[in-house]
Write a protein that binds this DNA or RNA. Structure first.
Lengths: 147, 147
DNA sequence: GTTCCTGCAAAAGCTTTGCAGAAGA
DNA sequence: TCTTCTGCAAAGCTTTTGCAGGAAC
């Protein structure tokens, strides 16, 4: 399993290599995303960091995430209807959204191995898989409420 | 192959059964979606119908699509970052978005047969698969431009 | 006649833009 | 010192809401 610190070090090295300045705000956004693997929204990152950085603005978070996405260090997730979510995991995996608690779960799936005949001749750059339903925790909670 | 008229008849019957009034605007939105299988945005439906119905408002299109989604006759597609797209095909299939021409292509894929070990114990209601890249038409156009 | 729908205007919410001052290298 | 970043304010866009008049049944 890849350690958390190792991942942050890997990321800051990548920023240096791409000549992206290691500002206090950027490092804190990265640290937040590394420690809170909840596919956070801009709002969640903002509230998670505003105590530590009282002058922080949402604009900076938007700017930072845009920079990180262009650097390939963060991906956006369009599973939510209104707010964009962001993922620090950039390797191929699927997402499940619980319609009750709104949490998003990762799942492993090898999308590259799925051959789609209709897409012969298409150049595929990105593959996303979004499932939705009810997670085990919420199924259990509903069962207890019903009794 | 399912005929187009047959599909519209099927849909209006379903509206009647669910006690949803067959207003002029609703029927026109359904007709538009049936004849323009481009996964249209609200804007596209609006511009496609405003000549025919000069008094039409976007609010009505939003209302109509919401009603049709609740009736299970239309699905929303979250493949676009800013605008929601809508699909009159409600059976399980995947979507490919061309990053050059922005067109969205359907592809056949049996998502129900894909077993995800990480999701044991999850109740899955919806499965979506979004791919993106370049479509054959745009690959060919780029090749011609390069020469 | 009653219920539900339409469409205008306004508001709400997420995201982007312009720019002056501040911080990074 | 020079370049880039931050954060405020304002604007831009899509979508939602409230409500009076109108259409469906």
């Amino acid at each position: 399993m890849r350690g958390m610190k190792a991942n942050l070090e890997y990321i800051t090295n990548k920023l240096k290599n791409k000549n992206i300045r290691l500002s206090h705000q950027r490092l804190k956004v990265l640290e937040y995303m590394d420690q809170h693997r909840i596919h956070p929204t801009v709002e969640q990152i903002y509230h998670g960091l505003r105590d530590e950085i009282p002058t922080l603005s949402k604009t900076t978070i938007y700017n930072t995430l845009k920079t990180l996405m262009e650097a390939g260090l963060v991906k956006s997730i369009a599973i939510d209807d209104n707010e964009t979510r962001y993922d620090i995991r950039t390797d191929s995996h699927g997402h499940f959204k619980c319609l009750t608690c709104e949490n998003i779960y990762d799942f492993e799936v090898n999308m590259d191995s799925i051959k789609i005949e209709d897409l012969n001749g298409f150049r595929i750059y990105a593959r996303d898989m979004y499932f939705s339903g009810i997670c085990p925790k919420c199924i259990e909670q509903k069962r207890e409420t019903d009794n």
